[in-house]
Each structure stands twice: as C-alpha cells, then as structure tokens.
C-alpha cells in the first residue's frame, strides 16, 4: 500500500511565471519521497494517517483469494484451448460465485481487473491439443489443493460459516471429478 500525505498545491506557486514546472516537480518529488518512506516505514511519519491498528484480515481472506485464482486459471485455460471452454467456463463461474459470497462475508471488494493464476495454465491461444492433458492435470492439481483448503476452513469455521464453506469444498471436489 502506498501512503501519501496531502500536499498543499497552492503553496508552491511563484510569482515569476515559471512556477508551473517547478511546482509540479516539487509535488512529484514530495510524492516520491513519501512513497519511499511509506514502503520502508509503513504508517509512520505521516501524522494525518495515524490511526488505530488496522483490523486483522478475516481468516477467510486466503480462501477468497484462492477462489479468484482458481477462476482466473480456468478462464485462461479456456481462452488458450477454446475446445475446452464448454467444460471449463461453468467451473470458473462457480469459483466466481464463491468469491462473491466470500467477499460479502468478509467485507472484501471483488477485483475489477484480472487476477493472475497461481500456476499459469494460460498457454497462448491455439495451443496444440497435445497440451490438453497437461492443462487438465494442472487444473486438477489446483482444484485438489483448493478442496483441501476449503475443507480445513470448514472444519475451523464458526457455525454461521460452516455450510457455505462446506458447499465450496464440495464444489471444488466436483470440479476435480469434472476435469477427469
């Protein structure tokens, strides 16, 4: 995260008319310094942003991220191998539906840009069918890991989350079957 303090734009204006470039440069330099400071010493040296400790991330955050990665991996594979799209797209949609429900539960925002899959199966479009087996094997591996992490999350969850997590674990297990 990049933290910057508000910069007073008006104070850099000068009378001699050459102020525009200088003030922009000054603002940019100030911004760069603050950015560097923010990277090495987060949340310090910036009084305006001193707040209480940020809330701990929800324990389901990794599962939410994983759902997005699984969806992205399937979407990439479907693009690379259009003859598999009919099989892969419903699975990607299921992960996206899981991510949407998890986002609501943990108060996260769904990303507006594409998420990069963990294990990129997104080979370029027009990949020969010989690579299909490898693509499916990589997708199965990801679903298996996903099933196991959802199973663990369900076991550890409070009662109001157990049913959703159980469905997510079961869905990932059925994906593994559907990718055979």
């Amino acid at each position: 995260m990049v933290l910057t303090c508000p910069v007073a734009m008006g104070s850099t204006t000068r009378r001699d008319g050459s102020s525009h470039l200088l003030s922009r440069r000054a603002v940019l330099r100030a911004g760069a310094l603050l950015t560097l400071g923010g990277a090495s010493v987060p949340l310090t040296g910036c009084d305006l942003l001193d707040r209480e400790e940020p809330p701990r991330p929800d324990p389901l955050t990794p599962l939410f991220d994983e759902a997005l990665r699984l969806a992205a991996g399937l979407r990439a594979a479907a693009t690379a191998q259009p003859d598999l799209a009919g099989r892969l797209t419903p699975l990607a949609e299921a992960h996206e539906a899981h991510a949407a429900e998890l986002a609501q539960l943990i108060g996260a925002a769904l990303p507006s840009t594409t998420v990069t899959p963990d294990d990129p199966t997104g080979t370029p479009p027009g990949t020969p069918p010989a690579d299909r087996a490898a693509t499916l094997a990589a997708l199965r591996k990801a679903e298996r890991a996903g099933r196991d992490s959802a199973t663990a999350a369900c076991a550890a969850a409070p009662e109001d989350r157990a049913a959703l997590l159980g469905s997510i674990a079961a869905a990932r297990a059925t994906h593994l079957e559907a990718l055979r």
């Binding site: 419903p90 949609e93 299921a94 469905s167 997510i168 059925t174």
Partner: peptide, 15 residues
C-alpha cells in the same frame, strides 16, 4: 456425466 447432463457440477452443492 453418465446421464449426459451439462454442466456436470453445481456452484453450491447441498444448498
């Protein structure tokens, strides 16, 4: 799969 039903899966099994 045996029945030829597509898709093979549902998003939230058991819901």
């Amino acid at each position: 799969r045996s029945a030829g039903i597509a898709p093979l899966t549902v998003a939230f099994p058991g819901r």
